[in-house]
Amino acid sequence: MTHQEIKDGEIIERYVRRQLAPDERRAFQEHYFACDECFEQAQTMARFVAAVRQASRKGSFAENAAEPVAWWKNLFTPAIGFAAAALILAATLGWLVFRQPSTPREDFASQQQQSPSPNQTIAPDQNIAQAASPSPEKPEKNERPKLQDQRDLLAQNRAPVVLLESSRGAGDSGNQLTLPANASSAILRIEIEPGSPFTSFQFQLFDSARRPVTTVTSGKASSRGVVSANVPARHLQNGKYLVKCLGLKDGQRVLIGEYDLIVRQP
């Protein structure tokens, strides 16, 4: 494989995205074992693709996403905020602690001028206490937005679930999955007899033309006999699918069931 072939065929990108035929894949692997430049490019491309996918999954590259800010810029905003708040607090405390106390004569004179009622006089130490303690009603500046961000992330990452049931007949509408636009994956579940002998399970997805889309392996069934598989959203476009579930034990695969699945994206 020459460098020109690699460049013209976009081999590096297609290798990382698993779009090469097996013999092309092998040829490129043998090439980068001998070529430092191509190896470095392959590593960079792999990191880049992984980072884009993760950012996309988090919603950073969505249409209505906020402008991304370079990571180092984020360091300054809270730091400046904290520094400013600390400075103001220190200045306030300093003024309250170190201000010159009035002489009794001055106090008496000001009281004479204002003619206050005895009940309105506030002791100096009470002033300091009020100034030092923050108002209990006011929340911390960044607390609510931070919690909200975390809740938003959780909502985005919550995958829709569908419990697959075997088709009952011609009139049956099949299993339906509504996949939100921001979903990164969906969970397929089937129920099997509790105490099943299989050590793991495979979910094979086929499109409406019976072409294989993806295969996902799942671990043991739960104690209630539920088997789940997490399927990446990119494999679930609008349309009909056939899902085959196979049980695996001692190198043998046994077909457990076949399920129709209709995927809809709102």
């Binding site: 980072a51 950073s60 402008e67 370079a70």
Partner: peptide, 10 residues
């Protein structure tokens, strides 16, 4: 990797 992409994407 994550930080490099953030900066490149900005």
């Amino acid at each position: 990797t994550g930080r490099a992409l953030e900066e490149a994407a900005s």
